[in-house]
Nucleic acid binder design. Structure first.
Length: 418
RNA sequence: GGAAAGGUGGCUGAGUCCGGUCUAAGGCGCACGACUGGAAAUCGUGUGACGGCUAACCCCGUCCGAGGGUUCGAAUCCCUCCCUUUCCGCCA
């Protein structure tokens, strides 16, 4: 959520940003609602001040034996007007709030302006895609042939876009996220194991609601949602708090659940687009002046995983039209996927600035005794586990149809003696 | 799921029965000052968040778990919900 005052005061910047994002909105209505809100608030508060003054005087007047029945009449009327005014005020505030929640974040000035992924900037490419001297197989074929992945039975037991990992496949999945968590923990991130369900307020706070309710799984008979990413519970940890010390860095493993509404027919085979997948998420809370620096650090921390796993990848800076709703600046890390013959997103690292913290009331004190300010929040995958497993299966496959395991994973696979 | 007791400022804790100097006591902590060679102790002063109006101060409003209601007036009375603790039931 953006600051309404900033929207009004920096109208030109704001409108340009929205245009760059291909977002439409009614600025005049926004401006009217804001003015109307303050007008109603002022009138209501004047009446309340009168009510408070009379309420304080009344006992004294009574003690002096004065007649207060006319005051009582007046106050009855004042009370009714306050009620009516507050109703109108609430409606105005709800309408304003509704509009603000539907407005995406303003892209940082370093973000390239563009419409879609074709306008993203490639920042760096690391590692060379392997040249195969045989026809490489896609990971779902390797996984099924090796008895590591079973899509057919998962479809029977649950439905499309679910997978059984089995035997070494299950072991590999577990090894990969343990390796990720260990690596991040070693690099200063505090481990979190979060709830996999959150309430509506948390989903709204991080920006998944109200706009993207169709993408979420709702648990029946409750107001809980399955988390689409650990970003939601971990960022919400500090909602309505004043954080004592910044920065704070967390890594969290979780299963993630996404309805994938609107992606019917895309990536239907394999591990790339599932309703349930594992992910290790990085979340940071920082001072505003340090957040962009931390975005670079976080991106490198995520990249480190791919380097240690010896997987070729590239990093791109998303353009204004391709960025997520809440983000001010996003780097995507894409791993080389031989079966796709292209790079596939395996991490998205974003600086949200104060967009979430304003919604959530996440604050800090610049100095002891100073007024609380909104902290900045960042999040990034570190990394998506299923896609990483897919990349390992494809990039490390042998001509015989087997798969080698990257050295970094040997201790986790029970191969420490190799 | 059932029963009971609770939820008050950064923490602790009084006030709730019986509505009105509650403008939330007292204590702890914290900040500043005095005292001191310096410190501890002691003494004094101050001590929240959010919003409105402001150049700023002042001032005003809101906040006693959340949301409604009663009333001229609600921390206090009524209703609904959430959470915590204990006991029971169930259970990995």
């Amino acid at each position: 959520m953006l600051d309404i005052r900033r929207i009004i005061n920096e109208k030109e910047v704001f409108l340009q940003a929205m245009a760059n994002r291909n977002a439409n909105l009614d600025f005049d209505k926004l401006s009217f609602l804001d003015e109307n809100r303050r007008k109603l608030l002022g009138e209501s508060e004047t009446l309340k001040a009168r009510r408070n003054a009379v309420a304080a005087e009344r006992p004294k007047l009574l003690k002096q034996g004065q007649d207060v029945s006319s005051l009582k009449e007046e106050m009855k009327a004042v009370g009714d007007r306050i009620k009516a005014m507050d109703d109108e005020l609430r409606n105005t505030e709800e309408e304003l709030q509704g509009m603000l929640l539907a407005i995406p974040n303003i892209p940082d000035s370093s973000v390239p302006v563009g419409n879609d992924e074709n306008d993203n900037a490639i920042i760096r490419t690391v590692g060379e895609p392997r040249k195969f001297d045989f026809e490489p197989k896609p990971h779902w074929e390797i996984g099924e042939e090796q008895g590591m992945l079973d899509f057919t039975r998962a479809a029977k037991v649950t439905g499309a876009r679910f997978t059984f990992c089995r035997g070494l496949g299950a072991r590999l999945e577990r090894s990969v996220f343990n390796f990720m968590m260990d690596t991040h923990a070693k690099n200063g991130y505090t481990e979190i194991f979060p709830p996999f369900m959150v309430n509506r307020a948390s989903m709204t706070g991080t920006g998944q609601l109200p706009k993207f309710e169709d993408d979420a799984f709702k648990v029946v008979n409750t107001d809980y949602f399955l988390i689409p990413t650990a970003e939601v519970p971990v960022t919400n940890m500090y909602s309505n708090e004043i954080i004592e010390e910044l920065p704070q860095s967390f890594c969290a493993y979780s299963a993630c659940f996404r309805a994938e509404a609107g992606s019917a027919g895309r990536d239907t085979r394999g591990l790339i687009r599932q309703h349930q997948f594992n992910k290790v998420e990085l979340v940071k809370f920082t001072r505003p002046e340090e957040s962009f620096e931390h975005l670079e650090l976080m991106t490198k921390d995520a990249e480190r995983i791919l380097q240690l796993l010896e997987l070729p990848y590239r990093v791109s800076l998303l353009c204004t039209g391709d960025m997520g709703f809440a983000s001010a600046k996003t780097y995507d890390i894409e791993v080389w996927m031989p079966s796709y013959n292209r790079y596939v997103e395996t991490s998205s690292c974003s600086n949200i600035c104060d967009y979430q913290s304003r919604r959530l009331g996440i604050r800090y004190r610049p100095e002891q005794g100073a007024k609380p300010q909104f902290a900045h929040t960042l999040n990034g995958s570190g990394l998506a586990v299923g896609r990483t497993v897919a990349a390992i299966l494809e990039n490390f496959q042998t001509a015989e149809g087997n798969v080698n395991i990257p050295k970094a994973l040997h201790p986790y696979m029970g191969m420490s003696g190799w």
